[in-house]
Design a protein around this nucleic acid. Structure first.
Lengths: 207, 207
DNA sequence: ACCCTCCCGTGACACCTGTCATGCGAGTGC
DNA sequence: GCACTCGCATGACAGGTGTCACGGGAGGGT
């Protein structure tokens, strides 16, 4: 039986190398490529003919492919023979939903015991879906994203606490309009300031 | 020659297990304990007679030992035979300074190539200091922490964007006093809102 | 006792923000 | 055409926020 060819994508070289060491302990697994940027994934997957791609979500990239979820979407389109297994620090419900919508075959958080990773890779390679059952429950309970595209846009900028005027110029809207969207988002999130609203929206994967 | 006994402390089980796999590839290194909380470090280090402790900084813990830096300080006090090597995601200058002040013998970021970790462990075990040279430069350039203890305290709470009134009750001060401290911190950080101030203070390791 | 410093609080002011009602133009469907 | 929705903008208001000057009171040193 031939080995499963794995691509590792994580921006932290130490974690990448450590995961490679962990997976290479398994005789049926072989790490054939490693990248540190989301926009390098597709090319490396093609070149290495990887079967399974372990993708971190929080990873730098280009504007077109800014993170691991976007990389999974690109991969599903460009290299359909490769299957994506998301490996992420944060178990945000919205991450899971967006990852599965983007064509990922599996989703594990970095809290998972190390021994289970190899098994997750095998299951993904076998065509099964692998999803943390706890997280799947949260994701369903959380419900859909109630924010409009504009609300999400201003919230993303509001995350780092800049004044409304600066949010307005970054998104090319008037300050008054920005305040309207923020007010609406504050209502939908049940918070009382724009920064609180932005933080809960991020934690729910809404932005 | 006997092996170097290593304790691994990282809250993410997968990363912990992967680092263990990486280090166990080296014949002279042996991972003898693993913990996932800052306040478990000292007991595990004593029990396992570890020589070198790899400590993640961002790690949950008790109020007395809230993170990896506090664990390093406790370790230096309670188990002086064990030496600490900090391994962290964020290369914030203040982290480095605080870690060294707390008695850590080394400091590497998770961007480091995987092959260098084992060497860092050996050097720490040999009594040398290991510090990322790039980070060391930044740390010196950054200068000392200009914030007073109170300013740092209110900024920590301000990080998540809650209204001033809620900051005031959490730190047991009047709202007016909180606004005074925030105003001072905003001036020292060169920002214009409390959340911006809190974020730059955090990124510089001031809080 | 005296002065001095430091921490905390208060009050006042201008500005920023969150909320709400309203309006205007560009589609869209009938 | 007409009504309708939708995205964006405006204006007004109350309350929150950042800034500043000032003051009391608890140590600490002499």
């Amino acid at each position: 039986m031939s080995t499963i060819r794995i691509l590792l994508a994580d921006d932290q070289a130490l974690v990448r190398g450590a995961l490679a060491a962990l997976l290479d302990l398994e005789p049926d697994l072989e790490v054939v490529a490693q990248v540190g940027r989301a926009d390098d994934v597709v090319a490396a997957a093609e070149r290495s003919a990887a079967h399974v791609c372990l993708l971190d979500i929080e990873m730098p990239g280009s504007t077109a492919v800014p993170d691991g979820i976007a990389a999974a979407a690109e991969l599903a389109r460009a290299v359909p023979s490769a299957r994506s297994l998301m490996v992420t620090t944060f178990g945000r419900p919205g991450y899971l939903r967006r990852a599965l919508e983007s064509g990922a075959a599996g989703f594990v958080v970095k809290d998972t015991p190390a021994g289970e990773l190899a098994e997750a890779v095998r299951r993904v390679h076998a065509g099964l879906r692998v999803v943390d059952p706890l997280l799947a429950g949260e994701s369903l309970a959380g419900g859909a994203n109630p924010l409009t595209e504009r609300e999400a846009e201003v919230l993303r900028v509001a995350l780092d606490g800049v004044p409304v005027a600066r949010i307005a110029e970054r998104v090319h809207l008037s300050a008054g309009t920005v305040r309207n969207y923020l007010s609406s988002a504050i209502g939908k999130t049940g918070t009382s300031t724009r920064v609180e609203a932005a933080r809960v929206a991020r934690d729910r994967g809404w932005i």
